[in-house]
Design a protein around this nucleic acid. Structure first.
Lengths: 339, 339
DNA sequence: CGCGTCTGTGTGACCGGTCACACCAAGATC
DNA sequence: GATCTTGGTGTGACCGGTCACACAGACGCG
């Protein structure tokens, strides 16, 4: 009777098969795989030859089990579709792939304790590897806070967010860019600039802070912030309110999606952009240059942010992060009355 | 002398600790975890109690190693940012998370043999688990074709794509929707409909096929297809060519991003949408309803596609897929001359 | 010449689960 | 009442890597 086929026995060669083929011990093969210095050049070549003769590939699960931690990174995020989140995830993936790390994704449904706890439990398993938390919102931030200390992790946060944690946090300095954008509008002759805000972990985003600073610095009045959600509808509602007020001539939006919805509300109210109202977005999504009018916005390099997070969590070299910069396009102009 | 701390010994309780605490053997604990029927109710309760008393969590790497395959799914894709891809990935993640599966992502850089081979090698490791390939393009399709038979996999494809594989493929029936969109434009009085195509695995996408069918059926002339890439710039170029031709009064775009760029080209040429030219997109991205004018487009439920792929690869019940449907908004109207 | 050191290699146990199989007591069958 | 089944449980080996440690031979030194 033929022996029962063991589950793992799918014919994939193991480290011991390689050892036999190369005429060395399995430990030597292991040493070659982890390029330990204590292997003679000839032995190494012998093993390497056997490896590609057998088309051997190390088993990641076995490695993780023996090592106590997987050669992997898991991205914890509340969202995968929004531009900033998706782009950061993409950056992490790219950098991880280049380093031969596996990449996992785990969505945190909300900041409710149950969801947070489950996400934390998920990455507490050693096979999750290192963790990058996208903490642009309170769900991510909450998870980051509750991560056990033995899980290597970094967070991508908004500037100035998540104070109190002693772990590594990386962010794009949006404050400065928001201030620049606001100053730009002011310099065009607008009396003040309104703001439609996106959700923020701290309640007061860095974008809002920069906006306020620039306004204060210029002695301009600081209008009430219109708080919107991530959905276009809430931004649209905020836009409708702004559209009703004829004194509104310039709006800084929390992100480009928000700007799109605000622009729609303005359009329905018969207010021209940039003729009647100037609009500035945030993020510079790929389509922003193709809007009609093309959107003046702040370019955020989330991809680089993701790469930087990966580098930091692996302990490699830090990736320099370019400061967000204002991209001038067609949605901003001097107010009609002053022209 | 205190024993050296073993790497994995980070204090996390193992199946044997639970067994000791419950006064049973480790095998019984294993049985409870895999809810085998051969455990008496009292014993089960005993074990369950011990499990949450110790806050025990099974180690995924060990499970994968013993089982020979991980309780996981890996999404193989050429892209993570484009709407269709990202949305499908999101669907897979949601469904997988609900089933307690880990989710991995692996980007296939291109359809070059090296990249394809590496991607295939990556998921050949048992710890990758099952595989969902997003095969909207040739990189994904190529990987899907070369996957070893022992790797459980399904592909999300475009309708009619990837012929010749005997594995499960799931798609949204875009052909019909493209035909509907074309008929809609024709019924408004347009002599014909132009098409700006996105890349396709087969060279002739299902969207293009549906468009051509509707044109043929109505006896309308079939204009040359403007082939664009995934980038807005190439679509913009296509749009410029169309804008130059005054006979063009209706355009079906390969997706909403394409439509955005084409609309921009039209705008720069002074051609109004929908006054001079009607525009129909494909996908119904979240912002499409907020464009000015709001975009008439085909709603594609990629999220459901992703969920369906996961269900299929796990062997669960099939998720019924809603047919893509045309959403009428403001970017289509009768041609000026016929009004 | 004996000893210590350093290099390179091999052996055994272990990571934390799984599978195969042996085993035992209780009820069914004849 | 002996044998057969069956439900419930335990033991040992195994998955494919890793670590700790032993050990052989080359070399340097007093």
């Amino acid at each position: 009777m033929v022996g029962v086929v063991r589950p793992g026995r799918d014919g994939a060669p193991s480290i011991r098969d390689v050892a036999a083929a190369a005429g060395v011990s399995y430990q030597t093969v292991s040493r070659v795989l982890n390029d330990s210095p204590k292997v003679s050049p000839e032995t190494r070549r012998l093993v390497l030859d056997a490896i590609d003769r057998l088309d051997y590939r190390p088993n990641r699960a076995a490695r993780a089990l023996g090592l106590g931690r997987a050669h992997a990174v898991t991205v914890l995020t509340a969202n995968t579709m929004l531009y900033g989140y998706a782009s950061t995830l993409q950056g992490v993936e790219e950098a991880a792939r280049l380093l031969g790390l596996s990449v996992g994704v785990r969505v945190v449904e909300s900041d409710r304790p149950v969801d947070v706890r489950q996400a934390v439990a998920y990455v507490s398993d050693p096979s999750a590897g290192s963790v990058v938390v996208i903490a642009f919102d309170s769900a991510g931030a909450q998870v980051f806070r509750e991560l056990p200390t033995d899980v290597p992790a970094v967070a991508a946060t908004e500037a100035g967010g998540l104070a109190g944690s002693d772990r590594t946090m990386i962010f794009l300095d949006e404050r400065q860019a928001a201030a620049d954008a606001t100053r730009h509008l002011l310099s065009l002759g607008h009396r003040t600039v309104h703001h439609v805000a996106i959700p923020s972990e701290t309640g007061k985003s860095a974008r809002e802070t920069g906006w306020r600073e620039a306004l204060d610095e210029a002695g301009a009045p600081v209008p009430a912030v219109r708080q919107a959600g991530w959905d276009p509808l809430s931004a649209y509602r905020g836009g409708q309110q702004l559209a009703r007020d004829r004194a509104v001539t310039a709006v800084l939006c929390g992100n480009d999606d928000t700007a799109l919805a605000v622009r729609r509300a303005l359009y329905e109210a018969g207010r021209d952009v940039p003729g009647d109202v100037s609009l500035v977005g945030f993020d510079d999504v790929p389509g922003a240059a193709y809007w009609t009018p093309a959107l003046t916005t702040v370019r955020m390099d989330f991809n680089a942010l993701g790469r930087a997070c990966l580098a930091a969590v692996i302990g490699g070299t830090a990736v320099p992060l370019a400061a967000p910069s204002l991209i001038f396009r067609e949605s901003t102009a001097p107010p009609r009355s002053s022209s």
